[in-house]
């Protein structure tokens, strides 16, 4: 055991090495993709890197038979933003409901879990059939949006459970006893505690939608989202433009993660400074 003090046991070193290997396993391939996206015009998909250049990044913007990446992005971004907003609103309000007893709470809980574990393709078949029956076309802003919500809401709710589990009801009672109204209690007591969790819900909502493949495949209709476009490129394109695209989207994801984590840290710091 690693106790509070004393010499480190040998297991510490063994597990440290194991952890380092795991991190290498996680990031190694991504780093090699990053390096090879600067491949020269020779266009080799493997190492070594020859005559480093930016030509494959330029190829993303000027599509020459590489598919419609800009168009796909212009659908994936608003879709992810809408899913993010809805996931935030719906899972935060529902999360608060679960702090009290209500009829059907167990059923709703298991329904949410079932929605989480149902295979994405199975669900997309159902959604596609439903839209056919209704005589509606499958679109990224209709059927795909709903398919994404069935996947992001369970995640949002699970995060809200863990956040609200830390919100002791006695804080609100104390605020009430001190004469705070309901709105003031929410603003000054509840919100500062749950805000980092809400940002986490937003990050999950955005990225899960932005990267989702199985639930979009059948439901997006005729216009591709970004993951669908990359999937098509996998079979058609055999140049490092795939790596360049991977570098750009990964960079975009890292930027979002940094913004989300940065704002969580900022909120925490401001809260502790006020005390």
């Amino acid at each position: 055991m690693a106790l509070a003090s004393g010499r480190r046991p040998w297991t510490f070193y063994a597990l440290s090495a194991f952890f380092a290997l795991f991190v290498l396993f996680l990031y190694g391939p991504m780093i090699s993709l990053l390096i090879l996206s600067f491949q020269g015009p020779s266009g080799a998909l493997d190492f070594p890197l020859r005559h480093p250049s930016f030509i494959w990044f330029r190829a993303i913007v000027h599509p020459t038979g590489n598919g419609d990446i800009i168009g796909a992005f212009s659908r994936s971004l608003p879709l992810a933003l809408i899913v993010m907003m809805l996931t935030m609103l719906i899972s935060v309000t529902a999360g608060f409901a679960f702090r009290r007893r209500f009829h059907g709470s167990a059923l709703l809980f298991y329904l949410t879990i079932a929605s989480l574990i149902a295979p994405g393709l199975v669900l997309s078949i159902g959604i596609l059939v439903m839209f056919r029956f209704l005589g509606l076309p499958a679109t990224w802003y209709g059927s795909a949006l709903g398919a994404h919500l069935s996947w992001t809401l369970p995640f949002g709710l699970l995060i809200m459970f863990s956040v609200l589990g830390r919100l002791d009801p006695s804080y609100e009672e104390a605020a009430h006893d001190l004469g705070a109204g309901r709105w003031r209690t929410v603003r000054d007591v509840v919100l500062p505690i749950v805000l980092p969790g809400i940002i986490a819900v937003a990050l999950f909502g955005f990225t899960l939608s932005y990267d989702e493949f199985p639930r979009t495949w059948l439901t997006a209709g005729t216009k591709n989202t970004l993951p669908l476009e990359i999937w098509t490129m996998l079979t058609n394109v055999t140049s490092p433009v795939l790596y360049a695209l991977g570098t750009v989207t990964t960079g975009f994801s890292f930027f979002l993660i940094a913004v989300a984590l940065g704002s969580i840290v900022l909120i925490r710091r401001r809260r502790s400074a006020r005390r």
């Binding site: 795991f22 991190v23 996680l26 990031y27 391939p29 991504m30 090699s32 993709l33 090879l36 998909l45 493997d46 190492f47 990050l203 990225t207 932005y210 990267d211 493949f213 993951p227 990359i230 999937w231 996998l234 795939l242 790596y243 695209l245 991977g246 989207t249 990964t250 994801s253 890292f254 979002l256 993660i257």
Partner: peptide, 18 residues
Amino acid sequence: CTVPFWTSDIIRMIAWRP
């Protein structure tokens, strides 16, 4: 450990090619 979760699965698979 968790950051890669928020990036694209397809891209992470492509990364194994080289």
